[in-house]
Design a protein around this nucleic acid. Structure first.
Lengths: 108, 108
DNA sequence: TTCATATTTGGCAAAATAGCCAAATAGCAC
DNA sequence: GTGCTATTTGGCTATTTTGCCAAATATGAA
């Protein structure tokens, strides 16, 4: 590691921001078009403060950005490649499904 | 969410497995060619049990797979697209660097 | 100004994660 | 069998993350 330590730290912070079911849902939803906090809250069904905090995690990581219209805040993706990213994750999942041993261990 | 809940949970488990600096380092290293636990341990400089646990997290998620040769265990990537994935993360980082406000908030 | 709505922030308790040490396991040589 | 090396597992504490509630903030309408 050594000199590259910070680099891996930064990378991992961005990835960590995506590693939550609700935040993945948010990423997928806003990839289709910007959504406000209340819309996402309705869809996910958690407390609005929880959703707001998830959004701030994504924003801090640079994954989403926001836009205010009156009292409503709309969020949208900031970097497009994020969705290709998800295709790769799905490849891992498909691969896990094929390998029953991994599927059993990982996808319980 | 509702019916797709499990899907996001599975995805997030795979992504979470990658969201650690040492595990990212491991992924990058073994993408160049398989490495044994002891080699990775030397490179990272943590306890060998810590590295072993990181590897088991990656294995459980289906990101890496292993091969035993005598007492030595070699790990390698299981799905190739993982490295393209990292290019996207780097795009987010570049984007963060450009936007000073985000850079300040995210990359302290 | 007050009121109402949308969102964020602070604080807390519960749950999950990380990393170390020690002990267990596996494989090979003798 | 014993001894040696490589790796994994168990257990423990410290740290981080999560999600709720309550309070604060922001904006617009009356």
């Amino acid at each position: 590691m050594k000199h590259k330590e910070d680099y891996y730290k930064l990378r991992s912070e961005i990835i960590k921001a995506m590693s939550h079911p609700s935040r993945l849902f948010i990423i997928e939803e806003i990839s289709k078009g910007e959504k406000c906090v209340c819309e996402l809250t309705d869809m996910i069904g958690a407390d609005i403060s929880t959703i707001s905090k998830h959004l701030s995690v994504l924003k801090k990581a640079g994954i989403v950005t926001d836009r205010k219209e009156g009292t409503t805040v709309f969020y949208r993706l900031r970097v497009e490649c994020i969705m290709d990213f998800m295709n790769c994750i799905d490849n891992v999942m498909k691969s896990n499904a094929k390998t029953s041993s991994n599927a059993a261990r990982c996808c319980k």
